[in-house]
Simulated assay, not measured.
Amino acid sequence: MAVITKMRATGSALAGVLAIAALAACGSSSDDAKPAGLAPSAEQSADDLAAASALDPQPGSFLHGKTTVTQLAATTPANGDVNPYAVLPVVHLGGALGAGDVLVGNFNDKSNNQGTGTTIVNVHPDKSVTVFADIPKNLPGCPGGIGLTTALVQLKTGWVLVGSLPTTDGKIGTAGAGCLIELDPTGKVAGTITDPHLNGPWDAVVADNGDTAALFVSNVLGGVKDAGGKQVDRGTVVRLSLAQTATAAPHVTGVTEVATGLPVREDAAALVKGPTGVALDAAGNLYVGDNLGNRIAKVPNALTRTDSAGRGDTVSEGGQLAGPLAVRIAPNGNLLAANATNGKIVEITPAGQQVGEFYAIHDEAQHPAGNGDLFGIAIEPSGAGLLFVGDDTNTLSVLR
């Protein structure tokens, strides 16, 4: 049954707080750091910090007037996988995929070890849940095994691609380079995509032309295993040129690094931090959530460029941003970024102005101020609402 909670977006200390009852299986990856962009010397509670940075959604923003969160479903399947990361509304129907379905990928297994989750569940419009794919841990062609990340896209031909950043024990020392896994519309594995430029695929976005597509993938493992916990500037975003048909799984026809030198670092709670969300606008600009840089970067001419834009142009940094993870484009053309450290979703114009925020997750019993609980987000196909997962409760919810 859906749980509906009314929320008020105001600047008070209790504004926009959603308290969701924690489920038995918790898959959260907590982060104890104070939200970036705020005074680092301030000895304040998480609630004080959140209130101090509150920004009511401005009229005309996507978040303006959205105050109701509806919990759609629990995302933990029978095998106990937790820590939902990827959120993908289905738009191309066929096989096991129907109108209104939403796919959710799990990064952890029932032991809550990072990088060991193997399942993608399908949340149906009637709020029932089925398993779309349960991928073998020893899948040939995926270096290191299976740990499903936020890199989840569907192609016009019906194929579903999901990223894997695998570990055997939830520690960076056992992490493998991973791969992209190709699934047919019934959830059956059809193959894998590997490349020297794919190293810890973390998130993805696709520009799909039907028989060809440009797939952008952020990567977070470069140099991390040998850095001894220190930050290194070896995160990347690559563009994979794909050829595809409805009957043959996509194959790579070209690879270009469009962003390089992004900061990455091992993290005891989250496994690894680095460039995460990627979003592509109609003009071909690629936006990247630079998690450790606490900013949103832009890669111009991402569809056509033949070289790297380095770290990209800074669109917005600090302010309400607090370790941005997933980044998506709202129907009004603004950017939406999911904060890692405080459970907020921040809206930003293409010019970089922060025009609103929504306190999507706040679970005092589990992680005060939503620390580490918000990850994947997605716009509903209708454009009406924003889908998001809660790692604290292993659930999918929608904001309208």
Rank of each mutant, 00 (worst) to 15 (best):
T5A: 12
M7R: 14
R8N: 03
S12T: 12
A13H: 05
I20R: 15
A21V: 09
L23E: 05
A24C: 01
C26Y: 10
C26R: 15
A36W: 11
A42I: 08
A46P: 06
A52P: 00
L55M: 13
G60S: 10
F62M: 07
L63D: 03
G65N: 08
Q71T: 15
T76W: 01
N83R: 09
Y85L: 10
V90W: 05
G98T: 03
G100A: 05
D101H: 13
V102N: 14
G105N: 01
F107I: 00
K110L: 11
S111C: 00
N112D: 15
N113D: 12
Q114M: 13
V121E: 11
H124F: 03
P125I: 07
K127Y: 11
V131E: 02
A133G: 02
P140N: 04
G141K: 02
C142G: 01
P143T: 08
G144P: 04
T150E: 10
L152G: 02
L155N: 05
K156F: 00
L165G: 00
G170W: 07
I172M: 09
G176P: 07
A177Q: 14
E182A: 03
E182R: 07
D184F: 01
T186F: 02
A190Q: 08
A190E: 06
T192D: 01
G200H: 07
A204F: 09
D211K: 10
T212S: 14
A214H: 15
L221S: 08
D226F: 04
G228I: 07
G229E: 09
R234M: 14
G235K: 10
V237I: 15
V237L: 13
A243N: 15
A246R: 12
A246Y: 02
V252L: 03
T253S: 15
A259N: 11
T260V: 06
V264D: 05
V264Q: 06
V264I: 03
R265F: 01
D267T: 08
T276M: 07
T276E: 10
G277R: 14
G277T: 04
D281F: 03
A283Y: 03
G284S: 04
G284H: 02
V288K: 01
D290W: 02
L292G: 00
R295I: 00
I296N: 11
K298W: 02
A309C: 13
G310H: 14
G310K: 13
G319L: 08
A322P: 01
V327S: 03
I329E: 01
A330D: 06
N334P: 01
N334W: 04
A338Q: 12
G343L: 09
V346T: 15
E347F: 07
I348H: 04
I348N: 04
G352P: 05
G352S: 08
V355A: 06
G356C: 11
G356A: 06
E357T: 08
F358V: 12
H362A: 08
E364N: 14
E364P: 03
H367T: 14
P368V: 13
N371A: 15
D373R: 13
L374S: 02
L374D: 01
G376V: 11
P381H: 13
G385Y: 12
G390A: 12
G390P: 00
G390E: 14
